[in-house]
Simulated scan of single mutants.
Amino acid sequence: MSWKFCCTALLSLLVSCDLLDLVTEQADDELVFPPERWSATFRSHAQLILHELGEYLGYSPPPLLERLIEEAQKIHKQRLILQETLATAAQPRCEV
Rank of each mutant, 00 (worst) to 15 (best):
P62C: 08
L53G: 08
D29N: 07
K77M: 12
C6K: 15
P34H: 02
L86M: 08
A9E: 15
H51I: 04
E25A: 15
E25P: 03
A87R: 13
P35Q: 05
I75R: 15
S16D: 08
S39P: 00
L31M: 11
L19N: 01
K77L: 14
R93V: 10
K74Y: 11
A40P: 00
L31H: 05
E71Q: 10
E95H: 05
M1F: 10
E95D: 05
A72N: 08
R79I: 15
P92M: 01
T8N: 10
R37S: 10
R93M: 06
W38V: 07
Q78V: 02
T24A: 07
L48G: 04
Q78I: 04
I81D: 11
A40L: 12
P61K: 02
F33S: 01
E52W: 00
E70V: 04
D21H: 05
M1H: 08
A89W: 07
L22D: 09
E95F: 06
G58P: 02
P63C: 05
T88A: 13
E25M: 10
S12Q: 08
C7A: 14
S60T: 12
I81F: 08
W38C: 08
C17T: 10
D29W: 09
D29S: 12
D21A: 11
F5I: 03
I75P: 00
K77Y: 04
F42A: 07
I75V: 12
V23R: 09
L48Q: 12
E55F: 01
L68I: 08
L65N: 04
I49K: 03
F5V: 07
S60M: 04
E55N: 10
D29E: 13
